[in-house]
Amino acid sequence: MKSILVFVLFAATMCWMMFSPIYRHVLVVRQAVLQQETDYLLEVGASGTYGYIDTEMIDQSRSRLASFGMRPEAVEYEISSDNGLGATNPAAPLPRGSGLRLTMSYPYENLFQIDRLIGLAPVDENERMRAFGIKMSEYVP
């Protein structure tokens, strides 16, 4: 009985040690992709040509994220400006010097369930990883 218990505990610990780094790697890559996409959208949206981030840009962003294996419908976008003006309207772009803010979030999708093997509580299923950025608009009317 004692040897069976030791075997089960050893097997669980061994599984966690083998597979936990893989899940951590997936987490790091997803966070990096999310931040890279945030930076790219801000660079394009705050350029002198646009001054906004509209739904077409968001749709293109979703397709780029899908190419990395993320579920596009699960990505949430929060777009705002630092002065209260609308930051998503192509008819009224943000003037030069206004801050364009973008926060993107994506669920963890049970990446931490393997931590239960060693007694750690996984991240809540409603938690999301986030990427944030702000860039000053360069649009001149």
Rank of each mutant, 00 (worst) to 15 (best):
M1E: 10
K2Q: 13
K2S: 14
K2P: 00
K2V: 15
I4H: 07
L5K: 10
L5P: 03
V6Q: 10
V6H: 09
V6K: 13
F7N: 07
V8M: 15
V8D: 06
L9R: 04
A11L: 15
T13D: 00
T13W: 05
M14E: 03
M14G: 14
M14Q: 06
C15P: 00
C15A: 15
W16G: 04
M17Q: 09
M18Y: 05
P21M: 08
P21T: 05
I22T: 13
R24Q: 13
H25A: 13
V26I: 15
V26R: 12
V26P: 00
V28G: 00
V28R: 14
V29Q: 06
V29N: 01
R30A: 08
R30W: 07
A32Y: 01
A32L: 08
A32H: 11
V33L: 07
L34S: 09
Q35W: 01
Q35D: 13
Q35H: 06
Q35M: 05
Q36H: 10
T38C: 15
T38R: 06
Y40E: 13
Y40D: 11
L41Q: 11
L41R: 01
E43Q: 12
E43G: 02
V44Q: 12
V44M: 12
V44S: 05
A46Q: 04
A46N: 06
S47D: 07
T49A: 13
Y50E: 07
Y50S: 10
Y50G: 02
D54T: 03
T55F: 00
T55A: 15
M57E: 07
M57P: 06
I58E: 15
I58M: 14
I58G: 03
I58S: 04
D59H: 03
D59L: 08
Q60Y: 09
S61V: 03
S63M: 11
R64N: 13
M70A: 07
M70P: 12
E73F: 03
V75L: 09
E76C: 00
E78A: 14
I79G: 12
S80M: 00
S80A: 15
S81A: 11
D82E: 05
D82R: 02
D82M: 01
N83E: 09
G84S: 11
L85F: 03
G86I: 09
G86M: 08
G86K: 12
A87W: 09
T88S: 14
T88Y: 01
N89R: 07
P90Y: 00
A92K: 12
P93E: 01
P93W: 01
L94S: 10
P95E: 10
P95D: 09
P95A: 10
S98K: 05
L100P: 13
R101C: 10
M104W: 08
S105F: 04
Y106M: 04
Y108R: 00
E109F: 05
E109N: 14
E109P: 03
E109T: 08
N110V: 00
L111C: 04
L111F: 02
Q113K: 11
Q113L: 14
Q113W: 03
D115N: 14
D115F: 04
D115L: 02
I118L: 07
I118C: 06
G119M: 01
L120Q: 12
A121L: 12
A121H: 07
P122R: 06
D124H: 12
N126Y: 02
R128M: 09
M129H: 04
R130T: 13
A131V: 05
A131Q: 08
G133L: 07
I134D: 01
I134V: 15
I134A: 07
K135P: 02
K135A: 14
E138P: 04
Y139Q: 04
V140P: 03
V140R: 14
